[in-house]
Design a protein around this nucleic acid. Sequence first.
DNA 1: CTTGACCTTGTCGTGACGTCAAGGTTTCTA
DNA 2: TAGAAACCTTGACGTCACGACAAGGTCAAG
Lengths: 264, 264
Amino acid sequence: MRIGELAAVAGVTSRTVRHYHRVGLLPEPIRRSNGYRQYDLRAAVELVRIRRLTELGLSLDEVADVLADDEGRELHEVLAALDADLERQQESIRLRRERLAGLLEQARDGTLPAEGPVSAELAELFGAMARTSSERPGPEPAMAAKERELFALLEGSSTDASGGWLAGLVGSLGSDPEALHRAYDLYTRMDELAGAGTDDPRVAEVAGAVVELMPQDVIDSMAGVEEFDVDEGDGFVGAYFADLAPAQAEAVRQAIRLVQERVR
Amino acid sequence: MRIGELAAVAGVTSRTVRHYHRVGLLPEPIRRSNGYRQYDLRAAVELVRIRRLTELGLSLDEVADVLADDEGRELHEVLAALDADLERQQESIRLRRERLAGLLEQARDGTLPAEGPVSAELAELFGAMARTSSERPGPEPAMAAKERELFALLEGSSTDASGGWLAGLVGSLGSDPEALHRAYDLYTRMDELAGAGTDDPRVAEVAGAVVELMPQDVIDSMAGVEEFDVDEGDGFVGAYFADLAPAQAEAVRQAIRLVQERVR
DNA sequence: CTTGACCTTGTCGTGACGTCAAGGTTTCTA
DNA sequence: TAGAAACCTTGACGTCACGACAAGGTCAAG
């Protein structure tokens, strides 16, 4: 047999057979005078055996191990390990499809937020925010959009923030239309701080109102907030404040300090 | 933020962020005077968005498409396509695990043949052959082992042989201990032909006995065997005959010719 | 004599990064 | 104040199982 026929018998390509030669999985056969490889039946038997193992999902290295060893025990172990691995893959795919199903449903409802695929709870809140905004006159405050981005970011990030209080805040805002209206009032007042100085009297007013809006249980769940350094200049926190106008940043800083005092 | 902190926020490595820069998925940020990349909040938002999509299983190209397009429809399509793909993967893994379960059971029974993982039917036949061999005096005929290799090869190959008659032959031999004993008589007689000439009178005798052993329905299922050229020198068939002693090959050739006449 | 179907070796590409290497910078600690 | 630890930079190679291509040589049929 020449390489093409051998490959056809085993249901692979010639390239695959040559690859097996290079990695030492299949021995190079003798050559005819013209340089063509000349295979015997033994080669076909070996190749089919290799193919059956790879079709199960074994890597070429694993196949080499199985074929090298005095088979009987090694094969069983490898198969068991492979099965365990496939089980993990199944589970991982199942979870992803579960998430996907939720997102696809949101897409059908038209409630899939532009911020990207987020959790169902966050999508619920974003939907409520869209409804709230449409019930109020004028365009949506820019601060509301920023808040959505921040929430989406925190939820997908591995900071401790996502631990507990974020979920609580999202839940209470998402389920309480009146609270959302009050939040939108605050977003509007925040927007108005855009051009103000950090010593503007409205800064402290807004900071106080923000804390007033937070339910007690959310504040309780923020234990550990005391270690939060609002004056950190360089890192993630600094980048967050740099994203705001000076007076807005100052208002947020003051609000956080108020929460820190409350928790203490 | 520097790259390490950005990466930590999103739960990826710095290398991943740099990779996204190179493929254009995330824009290169400004540099500090020392050459370090300096990220703002916007970058974190984008990176987390990218990560959420990749975690669902989208490729970086698909993520780029989703982020580039005026999102809302594209995303839905990509997610639906992804879900369909995951479903296919699930099915494929399910099938492989099903095969694996059979093999693992064989391994527990100790009936996993050394020829490698084969179908349950073939494993059954090989087990029956092992039992038959142990019931008879002397070592197993070499021809029996060759036949096993050939069956394993044909079953895993994409030749038309595996179409119908092989399964019939395997089934009838595997379920009929007496037939297997007759087959072992023939294997022994085949072995005895190893050093004989092609004109030995035993050649024709064995060929006739082989055909006698084949059930009529198996012969019936071999329609098309007429086109089989037993004198083909070079290909798979030639390699098969080359694997046998001359008189053995001649006996097989004559047996095939007898079947061809029967079918006609 | 050409056409087409084979064969040869060698090299690059795939996807999403991991892992050095060989340096420069910043920050913490003794 | 020195040095170590922990950052950062670019660049290049490795992963895995081949597919695709290049640039040829070989062989049988029309």
